[in-house]
Write a protein that binds this DNA or RNA. Structure first.
Lengths: 343, 343
DNA sequence: CTCCTGCGCTTGATCGTTCCAAGGGAGCAT
DNA sequence: ATGCTCCCTTGGAACGATCAAGCGCAGGAG
């Protein structure tokens, strides 16, 4: 059937238009787009020329309706994050958009309410607006994972299921302990023997994991960690206070911190006391935020391989959405150390 | 027609299911969702209960197909931006997601190639995947605006059409000149009389705009600007060099910079010379990036009202997508000054 | 010569929603 | 009782793609 004459010319062309121009049926055009192998070579060329000539691109809504897939990945923007988390998240989102784009997926952002961690998921799921979710805040026993699994919603988590060893959903995470161990070893190799730790409160799984790496490195060299660790809130102010206390009481020559925020606090304390970061006392942060790159004299920091994380997540998503689904084991990636003036 | 028995129970309910349960027709359910006024009160209640009971949510793909609208807004992620631009962009994206969510729209991110500024737009447009675009990099004569207008694609620009006074598309921008004028006045009020400018190369419209505000403030007080301005690349290193030269040759007591990046360079120079930022020499940056908030002693910076920008953009989009479209004039918002220790 | 097989393409049905034009019931006046 | 509104409701069609059969033709085996 041909288009109704007089129709507004800005309407995009449809499969039927292409079919008519190429002198084939709709299905043949569809095959030319999705299963080119099924066509005879000369027919394929003819259809492709018609597609080119009309500037045809399949209507997403129609395709989504028929195939029950949207090729969209939902990602929740968490309101009011801490700045280091934000910095990392920004880099992660960039990578995710690029990687998923190469795999034929787009990223759909939606807002979360600070109070209800499930807000937004439900509607997108029931309206089949997205094929899958990427969940980024699985720490501290957030209920998203269990909730999504219960509804059989495909999702991949950025973050281990700390509190649930039984969890069977795919996940990708960065080995924080390996990162802090790397940091501590770097300092040990430079001759430091009294290396302090400033981390988060004990109820943070991530914090305890990162602390474990520091501890492991020291113990591997037969050094004691006692009196060298402090656990505080993730603010500059806390980092500043904690480092002041540690300097007075334990006289460390270096600090490893659970975040760049805390490390900035240490730098402030050093400046207060006329100590030079990197010369008199070494400092290493975590996340390689923009601040770490800009501050004097440059903050050495553990850098998460977020590009690889995004790539692995997209890979897991593709498996999850395949027929039949392939679900692999969780993946743990190793961070690197961005060495700068502070160490 | 009722659902086929034996169908997989995880299939989401459809309009027909709700209709059957409520004892009405499909259209009545559709009206209950989209035009509740058309229903008798008791019928409406019955339908709403059925919707609630089944957990029904309209299938997005089917709705999109029928109404030729996706309720998605396309936003391109620009690869490898400078960090200040990134910082601002992150805050902007957050606001945009929240505001557009309230208006019933979601944000679709797509990747741009560094080389082709139009990559990605074309396909999303032709496949009717998004209703409209938000374009964020209209400076420097990027061709998106003209290209999109030519295809009658609805879009709102964050940024003025600097190079095209004839442009009729809706836009929202921040008055950079007002920001730097605010900064300069703040310094003048503190008694500074020799206030230097470090900005970008002359071919940047935004840079020249910001420079104009500084210049205007000085001239309003009868002060000369000659010898006090420098135009360089937007890097810390350039800011550092430029400020060193200015200090030697023009002896300013304060700096206003076109970006936080440049301001960081100034802070480095001050530290090199044992000068205290805020005490000996005042420094003001632009963008209120995370770095400005964290660095010692806190960098005073011009803060763009990105929440308002997002809100106005969504407002403009709603007008653009209404029937008939309402397209208002461009909107210029005034930034504020985040005062910290450096001034 | 007939039958079967497989390739390449066409045809009708379907996904779940909204639009359209017509159907139907209650209420009121005649 | 009949006719006429006025609303609300109804079935059919359409949006544009893919799925599942089906059809004609060529070539080989029986």
């Amino acid at each position: 059937m041909s288009r109704i004459p007089g129709r507004v010319p800005t309407q995009p062309p449809t499969l039927a238009d292409v079919a008519e121009l190429a002198g084939v049926s709709r299905q043949t055009v569809s095959n030319a787009v999705n299963n080119p192998d099924l066509l005879r070579a000369d027919t394929l060329v003819r259809v492709q020329e018609a597609i080119e000539q009309l500037g045809y691109s399949p209507n997403r809504a129609a395709r989504n309706l028929r195939t029950r897939a949207s090729h969209l990945i939902g990602l929740r923007m968490n309101p009011g994050q801490e700045f280091t988390a934000n910095a990392a998240m920004d880099r992660f989102v960039h990578s995710l958009v690029e990687t998923s784009g190469e795999a034929g997926y787009h990223v759909l952002l939606f807002a979360g309410s600070g109070t209800d961690p499930l807000a937004g998921y439900d509607d997108l799921l029931r309206s089949t607006a997205v094929d899958a979710f990427v969940v980024t805040d699985t720490y501290l026993g957030n209920p998203q994972a269990a909730w999504l699994r219960e509804r059989r919603a495909p999702f991949v988590a950025f973050g281990r299921p700390w509190d649930d060893a039984e969890a069977t959903h795919p996940w990708v995470d960065v080995d924080g302990a390996a990162g802090t161990e790397l940091a501590a070893r770097h300092l040990l190799d430079k001759g430091h023997e009294r290396i302090a730790w400033i981390g988060w409160r004990k109820d943070s799984w991530i914090g305890e994991d990162r602390r474990a790496g520091w501890s492991r490195a020291l113990k591997a060299r037969g050094l004691s960690t006692s009196g060298l660790a402090s656990r505080v809130e993730d603010t500059i102010h806390s980092g500043r206070e904690a480092s002041a206390v540690l300097l007075d009481e334990a006289h460390p020559s270096a600090f490893v911190c659970a975040s760049d925020t805390l490390a900035m606090g240490v730098l402030h304390t050093l400046a207060d006391r006329g100590l030079r970061a990197g010369q008199d006392v070494a400092v290493i942060g975590f996340d390689d935020s923009q601040v770490a790159q800009v501050v004097r004299p440059g903050l050495t920091s553990v850098r998460q391989p977020l590009e690889d994380v995004a790539s692995q997540i997209v890979n897991a998503l593709e498996g999850l959405l395949a027929h039949p689904p392939r679900v692999g084991p969780g993946i743990l990636l190793t961070p690197t150390l961005a060495v700068r003036g502070s160490s």
